[in-house]
C-alpha cells in the first residue's frame, strides 16, 4: 500500500489533488481512498489530505501518520508546519518551491524533490493552479499512479 499526504493551504486544491490521484489510481486498476483531515475550514489555513493506493481492497480508515510520499502545495508551509512529520525513512517529498532541494535543509533520510509549480502554472494557465504540475511530478518521480491514468482524469 502507498500512503500519500498532501499539504496545502485552504482554497489551494489539496483536497482536489487527493481526489485526482485516487481517480487516476482507479484507472490504473488499483484500489484507492482519499479524504481530507477536516478542521476549521478557512481560506489560507494549512489543510491536509490523504490518499491510499493498493492492489488489495483498502480497509484501513484511520488518518495517515507514516506516509510514503508527501506533496507540499505551498512553499510557505515549510516554515509553518512539520511537513516531513511521520514521513517514512527513504520516503519522498515533493515541494512546490523555486528553491533547490539542498537549500531546504530537510533531513537527508528523505528523497526531496522541488518543482516550481507556481511558475509552471502561471506560464501555462496564467493562474496559480499548482496541483496540476505537482500531479505530473508525482507520476514522473514515484510511479504511484501512471501519467496516462493521471491524464485520463481530465475527461471528467
Amino acid at each position: 500500500m502507498i500512503e500519500i499526504k498532501i499539504w496545502g493551504r485552504g482554497g489551494q486544491g489539496a483536497v482536489t489533488t487527493g481526489q485526482i490521484i485516487a481517480i487516476a489510481a482507479l484507472h490504473d486498476r488499483k484500489n484507492c481512498q482519499t479524504f481530507p483531515n477536516f478542521g476549521v475550514e478557512r481560506r489560507g489555513a494549512p489543510v491536509e489530505a490523504f490518499v491510499r493506493i493498493d492492489k488489495e481492497p483498502i480497509r484501513l480508515r484511520s488518518q495517515i501518520y507514516a506516509p510514503d510520499i508527501v506533496i507540499v502545495l505551498d512553499p510557505t508551509l515549510i516554515n509553518a508546519v512539520d511537513v516531513t512529520k511521520g514521513l517514512k525513512d527513504g520516503g519522498t517529498i515533493i515541494i512546490n518551491t523555486s528553491k533547490k532541494p539542498k537549500d531546504l535543509n530537510l533531513d537527508k533520510k528523505f528523497k526531496v524533490y522541488t518543482v516550481d509549480a507556481t511558475a509552471v502554472a502561471m506560464e501555462i494557465f496564467k493562474r496559480p493552479i499548482v496541483n496540476t504540475p505537482l500531479l505530473g511530478a508525482l507520476s514522473a518521480i514515484t510511479k504511484a499512479v501512471s501519467l496516462k491514468s493521471m491524464q485520463l482524469t481530465r475527461a471528467r
Binding site: 487527493g18 481526489q19 482507479l26 484507492c32 481512498q33 482519499t34 479524504f35 477536516f38 483498502i58 480508515r61
Partner: peptide
C-alpha cells in the same frame, strides 16, 4: 460523518 461521509473511494 467525515470518516466515511467525506471519503472518496470506488
Amino acid at each position: 460523518g467525515f470518516t466515511l461521509s467525506h471519503v472518496w473511494e470506488p
